[in-house]
């Protein structure tokens, strides 16, 4: 109870403090440069000053936070990647040399590439299929809602859920994991799925596909509904069948959205960490970059240099998407 009360007090203080800044700073600005009941010249002057200052009052906290939490760390990670484990001594390229000479890195890099190919493709594919089909049935919204649901589940929660499905009992014991139960039912030999090298990666990927398909579905479904009915009706009149309409009329019209969904999931995949950590912690050849980085940060007191190097690799992989995004946003703003 006491914990709850203090938590509540801290919460209220945190939120109020933030609100107080915005109120206070604007109030102060209005007091310093009043624009009411003053001579016209003074109003004009004060107004100019206030208008110059105010955007930065509004933006200030955001800019500071973004700089401290995202911009500066990117720069500093880059710097740290040239330093030793404590970040004090310059070691040149030796972290990079270590990285490219380490088997573990190539293993996680290969796995990451697998994730990058499989997960966005599968999630977008299933999302598109489900979106198309649910749009045609009366209980489509309920179906969508259920398929979208895993989105709300944490990676770690999802890991428990799926670990339960992949559970393995040796010998003649009854299998309580669904997958093995099915295998046994069909007369197969039960397997310890998450320890089978290489293929276990796919069992981990299924979890993320399970989570992300709903996201792809929701967005693609909206895009599909945005396709003008006339184009489809015209295709029907032109004698196209269902599949032709889907692939030649509908899909080309939503290419842009498909690309957005794809890249969004790709970014997420690059950051995938929780699932691997919870399911295998990188054992049995399932290491990925993000988990490897986390490992190096804390393993044996931590090696900041090596951790930073892995982070830089992730960053480099993201940069093309970043540039594409900025270009898209700029084009959008000019269109306005």
């Amino acid at each position: 109870m006491a914990q709850l009360a203090s938590a509540l007090a801290i919460m209220i203080m945190g939120v109020l403090g933030c609100a107080a800044y915005f109120y206070g700073s604007n109030f102060l600005l209005d007091k310093l440069f009043p624009t009411k009941n003053r001579p016209y010249e003074q109003i004009a002057r004060n107004l100019r000053t206030a208008n110059m200052v105010r955007p930065w009052l509004f933006l200030g906290p955001a800019v500071l936070l973004l700089t401290f939490y995202l911009f500066y760390p990117v720069i500093d990670s880059f710097r740290l990647s040239f330093f030793d484990r404590t970040g004090d001594e310059f070691v040149g390229l030796s972290n990079y040399v270590w990285l490219f000479g380490s088997d573990e890195f190539f293993e996680s890099f290969r796995n990451n590439m697998l994730w990058l190919i499989v997960v966005p493709t599968a999630a977008t594919f299933f999302g598109l299929i489900i979106a198309t089909m649910t749009d045609r049935i009366w209980w489509g919204n309920i179906a969508k809602s259920l398929i979208f649901m895993p989105m709300a589940i944490s990676f770690i929660g999802a890991s428990v859920i799926w670990k339960f499905i992949y559970d393995f009992r040796s010998g003649g014991d009854a299998q309580i994991g669904l997958l093995n139960a099915i295998v046994v039912f069909f007369g197969g030999e039960p397997q310890n799925w998450i320890t089978i090298p290489f293929w276990n990666n796919f069992f981990l990927m299924i979890i993320l596909v399970w989570i992300q398909t709903g996201f792809a579905m929701v967005i693609l479904s909206a895009a599909l509904r945005g396709i003008p009915d006339e184009t489809i009706e015209a295709a029907v009149l032109d004698g196209a069948n269902g599949l032709q309409i889907f692939f030649k009329i509908m899909v080309p019209q939503i290419w842009g959205t498909i690309a957005v969904v794809w890249t969004t999931i790709t970014i997420l995949v690059l950051k995938v960490f929780d699932i691997v950590l919870a399911m295998t912690n990188g054992q049995w050849d399932t290491q990925v970059l993000a988990n490897q980085m986390f490992d190096w940060m804390f393993r044996g007191g931590g090696d900041f240099g090596r951790g930073a190097v892995v982070a830089i690799v992730i960053m480099v992989l993201v940069i093309p998407i970043m540039i594409w995004n900025i270009k898209r946003a700029n084009a959008e703003m000019e269109g306005r």
Binding site: P55, L70, P73, V74, L80, I267, K271, A290, M322
Partner: peptide
């Protein structure tokens, strides 16, 4: 609001959208 540097800030926000937060952990 109109102020100098607005377009740059917007581009910055869009860019930071995809920065993997793992990048930030060590420096932070």
């Amino acid at each position: 609001m109109r102020f100098p540097g607005r377009a740059l800030l917007i581009a910055g926000v869009v860019g930071l959208l995809v920065v993997p937060l793992q990048m930030s952990l060590i420096p932070l």
